[in-house]
């Protein structure tokens, strides 16, 4: 490629734009319809389609254990998977800041290609815009995705079948993504890494075990607390969480205490919360046998008591209400 930084000309639709598109199609490996036509034309596996979109603006674009590209693919794959769908096709749109190094862009594109391959999805269409310096922070990415699902999984994302007595499962340590990004921003040295991972394979395995899964959601922004509060609100039952059983790495716990953060409010990018009825034991063991679910745990139960509330049983046996976070978590001294 002639230039080694992104210029406004890369967004002009001319030769340089073609060069960029060539780089994308080389990595994404679908030189067919998508590269040059205005729409990707694809086959559908069933006639029930899940469709989602999300934008990624994380700063910095590289962080321990991942980058914005991996995040952009996993995020959309996971949004589809937790709806009970098998993710198939992804689109990606880049907004690039003039002056970004082409090599940096290439790294991100490569990471997206790798993640898509690992997740078994195809990036079929995309778009690139270049904006003036300062109009965006190096690079923003939007991805949309399409997945296909079976009739019987249609309501999993809604949670309408959730009943008291159902167990709440999670596939491992919480809070790592939030703190990994925060650590690099504040130059804290530690070995906390993002948990960013495509969960579709793990979820597919679980859905194949039995029909006990009543609800799934990935616990991203707002963390475990946000997801469970939303669920409790929607279904009108209560949620009891057992503090001692919530998987939390020692270093994450330590940094949370240091900064006054609640790990239940921290973002994850590779954690699925599964609510399952009778037969949940088999779901749990399936989760545990997957590389992204080794630390899976039952962390709570759906109950009749305290409708619409999430109640935590603390490590010393007390209880308290868990609320949705009021805003961004900020380091504090009190």
């Amino acid at each position: 490629m002639s230039s080694n930084i992104v210029t406004l000309d890369h967004g002009s639709g001319g030769k340089l734009t073609m060069d960029l598109i060539k780089m994308f199609t080389d990595y994404f490996g679908n030189s067919g319809p998508s590269g040059m036509a205005d729409s990707a034309v694809v086959d559908a596996a069933t006639n029930i389609v899940a469709f989602t979109t999300d934008s990624y603006v994380v700063n910095p674009i590289h962080f321990p254990g991942g980058d914005i590209g991996k995040l952009a693919v996993c995020g959309t794959v996971n949004d589809l998977a937790v709806s009970g769908a098998v993710p198939r096709y992804i689109s990606c749109a880049f907004i690039l800041e003039e002056g970004l190094k082409i090599s940096e862009l290439e790294q991100i594109v490569e990471s997206m290609a790798k993640t898509a391959k690992a997740a078994g999805v195809i990036i079929v269409t995309g778009d690139t815009k270049v904006v003036e310096r300062g109009a965006c922070d190096r690079m923003f990415i939007n991805t949309s995705g399409v997945g296909f699902l079976k009739q019987k999984h249609r309501s999993i994302g809604l949670g309408i079948n959730v009943k008291p007595g159902d167990k709440i499962l999670i596939n491992g340590n919480i809070g790592d993504h939030g703190l990994a990004v925060l650590s690099i921003r504040n130059s804290f040295t530690n070995d906390i890494k993002t948990d960013c991972a495509p969960l579709n394979n793990l979820i597919e395995n679980c859905l194949a075990v039995n029909d006990s899964i009543h609800f799934m959601r990935d616990a991203t922004r707002g963390g475990l607390a946000a997801v469970l509060n939303e669920l409790a609100e929607k279904i009108g039952f209560g949620v009891i969480l057992i503090e001692n059983s919530i998987p939390l790495a020692e270093n994450t716990r330590g940094l949370c205490e240091f900064l006054g953060f609640d790990p239940l409010h921290l973002a994850n990018e590779g954690k699925v919360i599964i609510v399952a009825g009778e037969g949940w034991e088999d779901i749990l063991s399936t989760m545990k046998s997957h590389p992204f679910g080794k630390e899976s745990q039952v962390i709570g139960t759906i109950v009749d008591k305290h409708p619409c509330r999430v109640v935590l049983e603390t490590e010393i046996g007390g209880s308290r209400i868990i609320d949705i976070p009021a805003g961004m978590q900020l380091p504090r001294i009190c």
Partner: peptide, 29 residues
Amino acid sequence: CTPVDPVGACMVSSEGSCAAWYKYARGAV
């Protein structure tokens, strides 16, 4: 007056009596 839209200071700081009450004790579990 809620933590998202506080009226008094006691609701603002997560250590404030009202915020703590709102967050942890509402409905006296």
